[in-house]
Design a binder for these strands. Structure first.
Length: 282
DNA sequence: ACCTAAACCTGGGCGC
DNA sequence: TGCGCCCAGGTTTAGG
């Protein structure tokens, strides 16, 4: 599910709800999700919640951290004192908390509780020493992030080196951290660049436009608190609305929002659905 | 270095 | 109603 804007929306809420809570106990229902060492987190207070690309990192005050990847369908659901008037959970998106897809339950002090749901079970939680988080393989390999550290110069350098299609390059987490399928499609449409274009053939001007387009697409996703198509919910149970505001993602057959007279096409690129206007994006 | 397909899973939607 | 196929915000791995 979640790309940078979705994960950042989750991070902001977790930060608000969790910091200061002490973890009383952890119940693991599925060892594929969390294999070992959860006892390291017990009796420690949550100090901060960080995000690295699409990964989250919950830091405890005892030197340990939980690194979390939600993959396609991972969810955090919080219930507790800092949540005023929690909205009813959308059964279709959440399946209950706890429900049959709740794999880890964090019991917190002050009657707080945090559920980790994941119906496809691709997501994972790893317990690492806080000092080792940046050496953790997934995070170590992550490229610079748009809206934080990725500069036009770095972006240009990354692009200049390769003949790969620009869309696959944007989605390569080791080159740039945080962009997934929805925002890659949206940014390329905004920049009027065909997703199949070999990265190295982009002009200087196109690179500049694309850099800006990525920022615009991600900020728009953040503004609507992410896209909730199948399973994305915020920890308070609310959904995002970005799916109602995409320009091309999921809109095959619709007229081009630029009113160029073309229609949005869907092709497969790197075995991922790819949406674009063949008229605007030559 | 690049591309593809398959694997990890479950479930919703669609065509027949 | 039901079955079977295709698809899904991600990442990794194997093979060409």
């Amino acid at each position: 599910m979640p790309e940078l804007p979705e994960v950042e929306s989750i991070r902001l809420q977790l930060e608000h709800f969790l910091i200061g809570h002490k973890i009383i106990s952890i119940k693991v229902n599925n060892r594929k999700t969390l294999a070992q060492d959860e006892d390291k987190l017990v009796n420690a207070k949550i100090k901060s919640v960080r995000r690295f690309g699409k990964a989250l990192c919950i830091d405890l005050d005892n030197g340990y951290s939980a690194v979390v990847h939600l993959k396609m369908t991972g969810q955090f659901i919080y219930r507790g004192p800092r949540l005023k008037n929690p909205p009813p959970l959308d059964k279709k998106l959440v399946g209950g908390a706890p429900g049959k897809h709740t794999h880890v339950i964090f019991e917190l002090d002050k009657k707080g509780i945090l559920y980790f749901n994941d119906y496809r079970r691709f997501g994972w939680i790893k317990i690492v020493k806080t000092a080792q988080v940046k050496n953790f393989d997934f995070i170590k390999k992550l490229g610079p992030e748009p809206l934080d550290g990725l500069t036009p110069e770095k972006f240009s350098e990354i692009i200049g080196k390769t003949s790969r299609s620009i869309k696959l390059l944007l989605m390569d987490q080791t080159k740039i951290g945080g962009i997934g399928n929805i925002y890659a499609n949206e940014a390329l449409f905004l920049a009027k660049i065909n997703p199949k274009t070999p990265a190295e053939s982009l002009s200087h001007k196109e690179i500049k436009t694309l850099y800006k387009a990525i920022e615009i697409a991600l900020k728009k996703g953040l503004k609507f608190k992410g896209a909730s198509e199948q399973s994305f919910v915020n920890p308070d149970g609310t959904t995002g609305n970005f799916q109602d505001h995409t320009l091309v993602y999921g809109r095959q057959g619709e007229v081009c929002p630029n009113n160029c007279g073309g229609k949005i096409k869907k092709i497969m690129l790197g075995s991922r659905g790819t949406f674009f206007c063949s008229n605007c994006q030559k």
